[in-house]
Amino acid sequence: MTIAQLYIPVAVLFGISIFFALLLPILSKILGPNRPGGRKGEAYESGIVAVGNAQKRLPVKFYRIAILFILFDIDIIFLFPYAIAMKKLGLFGLWSMLIFVVIFVLGDIWVWKRGVLEWE
């Protein structure tokens, strides 16, 4: 079995989800009552009258969290092949992973202590 054949179930699932994602809105458009106008076109914000533009500038603190997210993402990416090849790698692999994780966690503690995670 080639790799392309292995992923046929994934492709089928993908196709089904696209089909339903398209089918349901189209069906509700066709079958449901359709009377647009007035207040229905406005954005709903907990009953408060909407003000301003939704796409305004964000504070930089969101960006800091995004960078942290990438760092943890990359950490996980390295843990994954290690977890699969762990038995084969033995003690040497364990040490190399341990050094990596210790440096990473030390960095995390540093970031934490300097208050980067605080949301003011």
């Binding site: 390295f78 092949p81 290690y82 977890a83 699969i84 090849a85 084969k88 790698l89 040497f92 190399s96």
Partner: peptide
Amino acid sequence: EAIGTLLF
């Protein structure tokens, strides 16, 4: 698995 073996 091959990537893990090479990498570590």
